[in-house]
Design a protein around this nucleic acid. Sequence first.
DNA 1: CTACGATTAGACCATTGGTCTAACCATCGG
DNA 2: CCGATGGTTAGACCAATGGTCTAATCGTAG
Lengths: 205, 205
Amino acid sequence: MARPRFDRFPAEQQDAVLDAARREFVTHGFAAASLNRIIQAAGVSKGTMYYYFDGKDDLYADVIRRQLEHFAASAGALPVPHASDADEFWATLTEYAERMLGLLARDPDTAALLRDSFAGAGSPSPSEAERQATQATMPWLRETMAAGQRIGAIRDDLPDDLLLAVAFGMGRALDAWLIARPIDDAQLPGVVAAVLDMMRRALRP
Amino acid sequence: MARPRFDRFPAEQQDAVLDAARREFVTHGFAAASLNRIIQAAGVSKGTMYYYFDGKDDLYADVIRRQLEHFAASAGALPVPHASDADEFWATLTEYAERMLGLLARDPDTAALLRDSFAGAGSPSPSEAERQATQATMPWLRETMAAGQRIGAIRDDLPDDLLLAVAFGMGRALDAWLIARPIDDAQLPGVVAAVLDMMRRALRP
DNA sequence: CTACGATTAGACCATTGGTCTAACCATCGG
DNA sequence: CCGATGGTTAGACCAATGGTCTAATCGTAG
């Protein structure tokens, strides 16, 4: 994450750096992004860049963090469902998924960044950016699953981690499928509902 | 893939290059692997390397291809299940999955390579290596799914691609979970069976 | 006014994947 | 046996990369 002193960097230049970085990471992904190009586009010297950030990874992690915050804000509150039966529980989750995927479809920058940062998921040593993204989601997921188990919507005969991983894998599959085959708004709910129903079947007690 | 003339390269040096490349890709992954280190370790000049391979990507794709062949050979024949009922169908698939995961656990080099080459799956422009790996598996998966549908073990009310993606996502989740939490041979079948059962529930008509 | 700490610019570094040229060497035609 | 041809090789070279370092600049406190 950016050094604390970055806060004292003139706001205008903060934006210049962060905007340039976001554009570069969005269009090239982390691996192919060029720090030199970012520096040039931001109109900032290399010394300055390294004075405020630890390096490319650090800058990337910061961009991801900000983008996650931005996305979370635009998504609004997604309270852990406190449903009383499985139907209601899964209906809520399906609605959530539809909303998120709709937002991602309408916010390609965020989508590209998040997908890029999740691409290396499962690597032996997750990047700071990936850690950010995971840590922002995991507690919510855990609580939601616990809630589902409490009302008997989700099985509890298997390790939580395994259930979570499987559900997560299905979610990623849905996302990947939607990217590969852009679909119009009318069809989206159907596909989302179908996959969420598969999730429900897989996780049912 | 390696240039055809690579066949005429002295076998000893072929091995030197391929071994060095495999070691490098296994220990660092594609992105962090250094072609210069490979060249040095193989005792071959840069000119020679580029005379036989198109570049880093090409060498990587070739290593992956060879590793896939090696793995396929060690796995033995995995015929598309021609079961008569769903129980038999899924029992066969479960047995396959157990076998493959057991092999991967016992062959860390192959496992590391395949995981690395699949890491960027879903990228806009899949690497040649990923294309290799996908192309080697997809026909089998499609046929297996078709067979499952024929005997009523798998639903056919959704696009094949979507079902395949979801199943694949669950498979990857299983694999990732097993990496993160190394498990002894006694427990493996239980976990595999559990996930395959979840797959079955999700894909049941 | 001085001195000090924060800030900045950009030269510089090793390393990267990739290109290119000059030499080498075996084979073949004469 | 000579010379030319074409496959092969070594490694200098290139632009670009992420990262380091030093010297200068700036603002402010004493």
